[in-house]
Amino acid sequence: MPIDKQMILDYVIREYLEEDDDTEITYNTELISGGIVDSFSMVSLKRFLEKKYNIQIPDADATPEAFDTVNSIAALVERFVKA
């Protein structure tokens, strides 16, 4: 199954940005180290991906680094979709 980066990006914007927040987010924007997503709220993104792609991402792999950009998230998901 191809990883839909736009869908991940849309979820990030909907879930983490306030309505009046006009921060521009691309596939390479640093979400966690850039302070857009805190590592604590990352959990809902992980659950969203697990449901969407019917996968289990072990906590050891769900690191702030792996979740830092839409590109790195897509790479992580792809690894588990293939597995």
Partner: peptide, 8 residues
């Protein structure tokens, strides 16, 4: 318990 958050 599972953790989740909501926007402020």
């Amino acid at each position: 318990a599972m953790r989740d958050t909501y926007k402020h």
